[in-house]
Design a binder for these strands. Structure first.
Length: 213
DNA sequence: CAGTCGATTCACT
DNA sequence: GTGAATCGACTGA
């Protein structure tokens, strides 16, 4: 049982490449009206400031990425592919726009609630295997964008203190689905051998739909 | 202001 | 392994 104390803003007010691996093994707590869902983080990706070509913040502040430029210890939730949400935790001082994308984890509490939200999942290790799956399983959407995740253990969303994953089990490599210059940075971190970690996929540009006439 | 395509997932073959 | 689904922020005219 992890400590029932949330991580502090100071934890997140550090370089994102420090914070990202330090989050592995920690417990994300989502309190829903139906009950709590808890997840042990097994895979994350760092998005390193507004000079990172792979980051949504690369072309400066916009309405969508505004919370990335905000204070550390808050959520950045974005809508993608017309149907999914992804959850990031903002790092570093105000204005620096770094964040950790939460890509996968093991549901340790509330698997039944998560399964209801994830009818396509056939095994427990698939409930939160991928960033959109993780957000779906935890009932995270736009409403949590900008939310302070350091508020308290009973807040709608938070990350608890407790032992991080052993450094010897942490691996890192290129980020999934990131193309261009940002593709080479080895800023994806995961727990070696964990069955909830999602498979790596290289960036694949979408084929053009055949136009009519 | 229309066109493009994304930090993805799922059903099917 | 391949292609569809589905929306809206961002881009460049």
């Amino acid at each position: 049982m992890p400590h029932r104390t949330p991580l502090t803003h100071d934890f997140f007010d550090r370089p994102v490449l420090e914070v990202a691996p330090d989050l592995l093994g920690r417990t994300l707590v989502r309190t829903t009206p139906d009950g709590p869902i808890e997840l042990r983080l097994t895979e994350v990706e760092a998005y390193n400031g507004s000079t990172d070509p792979g980051s949504h913040a690369y072309r400066g502040r916009t309405e969508r990425n505004a919370s990335m430029f905000g204070p550390p210890g808050h959520a950045y939730v974005y809508f993608i592919y017309g149907m999914w949400f992804s959850l990031n935790l903002v790092c570093g001082p105000v204005g620096t726009a770094s964040g950790v994308l939460l890509r996968a984890g093991e549901i340790t509490t509330g698997a039944e609630l998560a399964q209801k939200r994830r009818p396509a999942a056939r095994k427990e290790n698939e409930l939160a295997k991928g960033p959109a799956r993780l957000a779906t399983a935890l009932d995270v959407d736009r409403g949590l964008n900008g939310f302070d995740i350091c508020a308290g253990p009973d807040a709608p969303l938070g990350v608890l203190t407790g032992a991080p994953a052993l450094a010897g089990r942490v691996r890192n490599g290129p980020r999934t689905g990131v193309g261009g210059e940002g593709a080479t940075h080895p800023w994806r971190f995961w727990i070696e051998g964990d069955p909830t970690v999602s498979p790596y996929r290289a960036h694949a540009p979408r084929r053009r739909r055949p136009s009519e006439a």
